[in-house]
Design a protein around this nucleic acid. Structure first.
Lengths: 395, 395
DNA sequence: CGCAATAGTTCAGCCGTACAACAAAACTCG
DNA sequence: CGAGTTTTGTTGTACGGCTGAACTATTGCG
């Protein structure tokens, strides 16, 4: 509770209730009226009115034209999240692309730039300069349309210290000890510096799932070149002390297994990493995941064996994960989402067998629902979540 | 944020500031004056005064006689947690003992009953009835001395669903599907039901460490018949969805290892469980841990081998744990605390080798500081923490 | 067309904190 | 040793924010 650490004054009351009202509007299943919000929050209609007016003036909430319900009484004014007003910016540097995506409070993509191309062993300076150009274009486009950019989140495939915003190491990019925020130096049209935070790619991708129909707590596994995971608890990321939670790629599946680049033997990555999947299926390591799917559809034995082996290893590692953090939903993302038809039941079976809690509460294993470049969406959503969580800063 | 989910009124302000003031008094390194509290919290001296008066009236805070500092000005009245006023009750049923311990806000043990004896394959009804007697004696003793019992926490060595307060299974007790709270039916002297919550033994023992000099986030491993762990983040337990986090005992260390009672092979418990340690050292499984220490001191080869093997397995499992939840401190409790001189460096070495983050932030492995029956202390402390976290309920 | 019902607004009242002035009890220094 | 200084804790007034009740606005219904 970092929240309770400050003295509460009258002003604090207002901030908290503003947050409460914003949450009521944003999380409602149908557009609520001021009266509905009052009922939902326990505040009086008088108070809700003044708070809603503030949110409307600040561009976070919009009023729809009053529509007469089928019952007696003055027609209600439905309240909805305001689109095209405030946007969050998701940024990402990954092994084979680079991108920026702006989302508004409705969840619509308002502007986007994605450039593909291998960034294996690339120069951080040069790549971040390219990303800055992309991001600046998106910011300019958004501001030209009269919207405000609330902040940005940068997703990177490596160990990111969230407190210092420092990338310690990203083996697949060949980067180490990079401080991307000053390098990017993003600014709004007015020249004000834009708030940018850095996080691991898998963790931001996990947040993208919250847009869909997913329980409040789950484990997200992103199968890419590396294997990373994000732990979501009550719709919030569980980052650990420095943001290095979820490093599942080097969980030892079998000490007698193949040697890994990390020095140990039998790491999960040596069974379920993208390169291993491709090579095991007889494909070049630069091939897309879809190539494996084609082989699987054709009944290719090597591909089927490799994927099954990966599924068993992944299941074993996830069972350990479930035993240690107790979650009942696992979302398979990245390459595993595409391969879900072949790995899903294998993973589910192993987890069911090995998770101690399984007899009392079965573990649900499902494919990711978010579209491509999920970390871009997750990053942008995270910015917007912080806006809704503290509306007082934006009105 | 379960806290922000309710409407904030004037009354809420007072509750929050009361909590803030209580925290300032309880967490200060030296007894603070009202003026110190004002400076620390950002509230005015006027407000702090009325809040402190309330805490004093409620028996949570006490005033020491004003002592003249070495500097000019009216001497300050030092504020301290009030002893012998409100107590928390820790309860525990474990494999070889049964106990109840009452702690006051100063941290003193005010009353205690511990009965030893094997509870292997015992009858829950009968054992809980015995615990009720013990607890009732402690409550009576405490109330006779004019103190109030704020609540109780019951520690059990098994899978406890914290939401329903239901013990799903405790293999070493031979218990399953037990609802201990109605069975205990604890009451105050006035006949009011006492608030009792149930939790896993290792998790409450972890909380006992908070009394000492330990960082806000750490992993606690309790080596007993089973091997359990508690995850503490920012001085709070991370329980997982149902309270089943930290089940490290069945992390697979080596798929080619010995078969475990859970059905899998090579579980940590088969390397580092108390029975395995005893048998490996050539002792009967009913022997105390101290017997192993005697053998180790004497340089017994079988014992040294067994303990080293256990240390390596424990280190491997903990490295996985650290990779998944990112903590930089590991506290070894239970049997491992006694054996720390022999396992500590082995565990530390393996963790350092396998934890991905170790090069950037070394992992500190240390023995537990809390005394015997740590779960009793941890449970009682947890009750008191809830009192300080919501003082409005107790004034 | 009048009445009931519901949404949203206005205004006095209350509560808790801030601010400033004040009282209490020490130290200091001529 | 006593007046000025300094710090603590208290008292009283002002102000902001929520509540509750009364009020207006707008619809459906008989």
């Amino acid at each position: 509770m970092p929240d309770g650490a400050a003295a509460s004054r009258q002003h604090t009351l207002r901030e908290r209730n503003l947050r409460l009202v914003a949450a009521a509007v944003f999380e409602a299943s149908a557009p609520p009226s001021r009266a509905d919000v009052a009922a939902a929050t326990g505040l009086t209609r008088a108070t809700v009115s003044t708070l809603v007016d503030r949110l409307v003036a600040g561009g976070l909430v919009a009023e729809l034209p009053p529509v007469a319900a089928q019952k007696a009484g003055r027609p209600a004014v439905p309240l909805v999240p305001a689109g095209r007003s405030v946007v969050g910016l998701g940024l990402e540097v990954n092994v084979d692309y680079l991108g920026a995506r702006a989302l508004d409070l409705v969840g619509d993509v308002v502007a986007e730039r994605v450039v593909t191309g291998s960034l294996h062993d690339s120069d951080p300076r040069e790549v971040l300069a390219r990303l800055r150009t992309l991001a600046a274009e998106v910011v300019a486009e958004v501001e030209a349309a009269g919207m405000r950019v609330a902040g940005a989140r940068l997703a990177l495939p490596g160990l990111v210290d969230v407190r210092g915003g420092r990338l310690e190491v990203a083996p697949n990019l060949g980067w180490s000890s990079v401080e991307p925020v000053p390098e990017l130096d993003l600014r709004t049209g007015d020249g004000d510096p834009l708030d940018v935070e850095v996080a691991n790619e898998a963790k931001l991708a996990a947040l993208a799932e919250l847009a869909g129909d997913v329980p409040p707590s789950f484990l997200y596994v992103s199968g890419d070149v590396g294997v990373g995971a994000g732990i979501v608890v009550d719709r919030h990321l569980f980052l650990g002390e420095r943001g290095w939670s979820g490093e599942i790629g080097h969980v030892v599946v079998d000490p007698a297994g193949p040697r890994c680049s990390c020095g140990a033997t039998g790491c999960l990555e040596q069974y379920a990493g993208k390169e291993v999947l491709l090579r095991g299926s007889g494909l070049p390591s630069s091939a897309p995941v879809h190539a494996i799917v084609d082989l699987l559809r054709a009944g290719d034995d090597a591909a089927l064996d490799t994927v099954r082996r990966a599924g068993r290893a992944l299941g074993a590692a996830l069972a350990t994960f479930v035993n240690l953090v107790d979650v009942s939903t696992i979302v398979l993302g990245g390459a595993y989402a595409e391969l879900f038809g072949w790995v899903g039941h294998v993973v589910g079976g192993v987890v069911e067998e090995r998770a101690l809690a399984a007899p009392f509460a079965p573990v649900d294993v499902r494919p990711a629902a978010a579209g491509p470049h999920a970390a871009l969406t997750g990053g942008a959503r995270e910015v917007l979540r912080s806006v809704v969580a503290d509306p007082a800063r934006w009105v």
